[in-house]
Each structure stands twice: as structure tokens, then as C-alpha cells.
């Protein structure tokens, strides 16, 4: 085999691998979409994802509730009642904290920054029980505004975002801050008028990640939301699964699909920001 043939074989092989792995990654989701339009008899009769006799039964059933005052739509609204404040609070508090760490020197900064980063290694599981006890004392359990989920976001408690924003901030030239100071901006004005506009792509990335993570969060609502009508989509999907698994898969899968649809749409609209955001923390700096 000559060099040229060898190279062609290599290229073909690469595409074969990429496409095969791509199918493993995407097919389950495609199948899921198709399955919501299948009858329950057809569901597992074949491996194709296009329904033979498309039906809307799964979707119609997905709109019904399970005897309580909660259905997929009210649970979706509940989800975004805490996701949206959490996203906004996280981005603002993480930006301010990153500004403090990234742009100034003060006593103890090294130690505090190390402590902040060390929180990346503190598993949430260790904190669940004592936090629950603490929130219980605060009277936050089952709060109508989801205090245990929303409040920590006000205080930049997720080090990942602070770190990510510090890394991005490093690429904004310090000359700009100095020029702003000479023009009479105080440090807060420098942050809001100079840094924030330049940091916008990173702030958008942070917002997108927090949106995904807090929409997917299951443990938080499981612990802190007990009133049926306040439960978010993550809990509703679990409820639906427990009630219907074994006989109404099209309904369960339709409920599941609706619950992740906003995340999917956001991802497709902003995939480049995700990639930029995920690479910022580890590769630069």
C-alpha cells in the first residue's frame, strides 16, 4: 500500500469512528423524540425512531396532571421561578467577586483566593445535611420563593464561575482601568462601564452554564421543595416516571422531553458560548 492509499484509508477510518460515536451520542435523543409519537405497543417493538402510526396520545396524556394541582406546565414555571433569579444572582455576584480578586491587591488575598478555589473540591454531598439543618432553622424549607436554592447564588458560592470570570478578566488590559481612573471613574464605575461590557461574553457563558445546571438540578428541589404545587419539572418527571413506568412510556418520555426542551433550545442557540466558557477556565491562564 502506498503512502497515498494509506492516508485515504486513515481518513475514511477517522470519519467512520466519528460517525459511529456520533450515533451513540445522539441516537438515544432522536429515539426519545420519535418515541413520544409512538403508541405504547409500538414503543419497544422496533429500534427505529420514526413512528409507524404517529399518535399524539403521549403528548395529550403529558398535559394531564397526576391527581394533584401540578402538571408539566406549572412545574416548568416553578423551575424557572428559581432558575432565572439564580442565574442573575450568580452572574452578578461572581462578577463582583472576580473583580475584587482579579483587579486588586489587598491583605490576605492569596489565602482567600486559595480558599475560594479549594471549594471546587468540597463535595456538595458533605454539605447537604448540615445545610438542610441550617435552612430549616432559617425557616427556608419549602419557601415559596425557593430560598435555599436561590439565596446562596447571591453570595458567589459557586467558585467555578468566579474562577472562570477571573480567567477571562485577565485578558482585559489593565491600561483600560487606569485610563478610566484618570478620567475620574471610581472603581465601581470602572467595573460597570469598562470591565462589564468587555466581560459580557464570559458573563453570558456563566449564565448559560448556571441555567443548564440549575434546570437539571434534582437534589436541591428534592430536599427543599415539599409542597406539591411548588414542585419543579425535575420532580414532576420523577413523579411521572413512578406513576407510569411500565405501561405509558410515551407519556413519560413526552413529559421528559418537554422538561429538557428549553435547555436544548438554549444550547442550540448558544453552543459557541458554551464551548468558549468551558475552555476558558482550564486552558487559558
Amino acid at each position: 500500500m502506498g503512502m497515498k492509499e494509506q492516508k485515504t484509508v486513515g481518513t475514511v477510518l477517522k470519519y467512520v469512528v466519528l460517525i459511529a460515536v456520533g450515533i451513540v451520542m445522539v441516537y438515544p435523543l432522536l429515539w426519545m423524540i420519535g418515541a413520544t409519537f409512538k403508541t405504547n405497543n409500538e414503543m419497544f417493538a422496533g429500534a427505529g425512531f420514526i413512528p409507524a402510526n404517529p399518535t399524539l396520545d403521549g403528548w395529550k396524556d403529558a398535559m394531564k396532571n397526576y391527581g394533584g394541582d401540578l402538571n408539566i406546565w406549572t412545574s416548568m414555571i416553578n423551575t424557572y421561578k428559581y432558575v432565572i433569579p439564580k442565574v442573575i444572582f450568580t452572574v452578578l455576584s461572581a462578577t463582583i467577586t472576580a473583580y475584587g480578586f482579579g483587579r486588586f491587591n489587598f491583605k490576605g488575598k492569596g489565602i482567600l483566593f486559595a480558599l475560594m478555589l479549594s471549594m471546587l473540591f468540597l463535595p456538595q454531598v458533605v454539605l447537604n445535611v448540615p445545610q438542610y439543618i441550617m435552612y430549616n432553622k432559617f425557616g427556608w424549607i419549602d419557601s415559596p420563593w425557593y430560598a435555599p436554592i436561590v439565596m446562596p447564588a447571591l453570595f458567589a458560592t459557586e467558585s467555578y464561575f468566579v474562577f472562570m470570570l477571573v480567567q477571562f478578566m485577565r485578558n482585559i488590559p489593565r491600561d483600560l482601568d487606569e485610563a478610566a481612573a484618570i478620567d475620574g471613574c471610581n472603581s465601581w464605575q470602572t467595573l460597570t462601564k469598562i470591565i462589564m461590557p468587555m466581560l459580557k461574553p464570559a458573563m453570558v457563558s456563566a449564565a448559560l452554564f448556571q441555567f443548564m445546571w440549575s434546570s437539571n438540578d434534582f437534589m436541591g428541589p428534592l430536599l427543599y421543595v415539599t409542597t406539591q404545587s411548588r414542585k419543579p419539572a425535575a420532580l414532576f418527571v420523577k413523579l411521572s416516571m413512578d406513576a407510569d413506568t411500565g405501561f405509558a412510556w410515551n407519556r413519560v418520555l413526552a413529559v421528559s422531553l418537554i422538561s429538557i426542551a428549553p435547555s436544548l433550545i438554549v444550547f442550540f442557540c448558544a453552543q459557541n458560548q458554551f464551548i468558549d466558557g468551558v475552555t476558558a477556565g482550564a486552558v487559558k491562564g
Partner: peptide
């Protein structure tokens, strides 16, 4: 002199 510290106060409270 310690303006940077003031910006991280929310984080310290949360921490």
C-alpha cells in the same frame, strides 16, 4: 487601599 477586599465581602459572607 483595600477596595478589592470590599468587592469580595459578599463572597466572604457566603463562604
Amino acid at each position: 487601599q483595600n477596595i478589592g477586599f470590599i468587592y469580595i465581602i459578599p463572597w466572604i459572607i457566603g463562604f
